[in-house]
């Protein structure tokens, strides 16, 4: 479990994180989403004890990272933005070092590392120097290092950056399989990724929490912005009278282009006016050329939420 309370990080007047609070329950995969410079990495660095917070608390598995750092750090596996690899070491040597650093018992080290290399699919490069590995392999070695010692909590900062599409799918599968035993907090600026793996999403912008909910709920929040776009052949006044007679419409816009009218309808919650619109237009003998429901993707929600924030300022 990760508990972040009122976290503030101030770099000499440059506030990277501003009063952030959230809780990640045991066993959840939570996606941490935000544009570049939103404070994702800073927050993760604070939770893992790499840097300190100006204010607030980060509590990991019941231990405050600032008061009892060694106990808190013991239950965290961290993959930073740039995997912390010793380039002049061999993969296996590196993982053995990490295991010793994380105080894994000597008798368990070899078998644990063999398992982890199997899991992250790096067993075939175990004897190679890290500096000779490609970006994708390095990323996986970093991930393997985070898993070493099987900590209860994994914190992964953009785990799929620099990987090719196949590897991205593999890593996602891996993260999903890890979530059975671990609590995972992963950051990304790619919506689909978070959408594909996470139980919950935290969206932050400029160091502040914008939204924290399940992907479905976040979509629901924005459902009112769901739009029905209808293109009709006919005159605007005629169409107007026909459509205005229908109930369940929240907001409507008309746009005349040549002999066509484009109608943008925002519907009320739990109402589907498509049939009614279609019948109404049939009655006045105006053919419907195109009708589509514009569902809002998480991407747009994300843009919307973070963009709306900017406008507010």
């Amino acid at each position: 479990m990760i508990e972040v309370k009122n976290l503030v990080k101030d770099y000499y007047g440059n506030v990277a994180v501003n009063g952030l609070s959230f809780t990640v329950e045991a066993g959840e995969i939570v996606g941490f989403l935000g544009p570049n410079g939103a404070g994702k990495s800073t927050t993760m660095n604070i939770i893992t004890g790499y840097i300190s917070a100006t204010e607030g608390h980060a509590i990991v598995n019941g231990y405050d990272v600032f008061d009892e750092p060694e106990k808190a750090k013991k239950s965290i596996g961290y993959l930073p933005e740039q995997p912390p690899l010793y380039l002049e070491m061999m993969v296996k040597e590196y993982l053995m070092f990490v295991a010793e650093l994380k105080k894994v018992k000597k008798s368990e080290r070899a078998s644990m590392i063999a398992d982890i290399m199997e899991l992250t699919k790096i067993a075939d490069v175990s004897g190679r120097l890290i500096k000779h590995l490609s970006k994708g392999y390095r990323q996986r070695v970093g991930l393997a290092a985070a898993i070493v010692g099987y900590p209860e909590i994994l914190i992964l900062d953009e785990p799929t950056v620099g990987l090719d599409p196949n590897q991205i799918i593999e890593i996602r599968e891996l993260i999903k399989s890890l979530s059975k035993k671990h609590t995972i907090l992963l950051s990304s600026h790619i919506m689909q990724e978070v959408d594909a793996v996470c139980d919950k999403i935290i969206i932050i912008n400029r160091g502040e929490l914008v939204a924290y909910d399940t992907p479905a709920n976040i979509a629901k929040v924005m459902e009112e912005s769901r739009e029905l776009i209808v293109t009709v052949k006919g005159g605007e006044p005629q169409v107007r009278t026909a459509i205005d007679a229908i109930g369940g419409i929240k907001e409507i816009k008309y746009l005349t282009v040549g002999d066509k009218v484009i109608i943008k309808i925002k519907m009320q919650e739990n109402v589907d006016v498509r049939e009614a619109v279609s019948f109404a237009l049939m009655d006045i003998r105006c053919p419907v050329l195109d009708m589509r429901l514009h569902e809002v993707s998480l991407e747009e929600i994300f843009l919307n939420l973070t963009g709306a924030n900017k406008e507010a300022e």
Partner: peptide, 14 residues
């Protein structure tokens, strides 16, 4: 420079 201090400082070692 290599940011490997991140590994050391986030490990359970003082």
């Amino acid at each position: 420079r290599q940011k490997t201090d991140q590994l050391l400082l986030t490990a359970p070692v003082s």
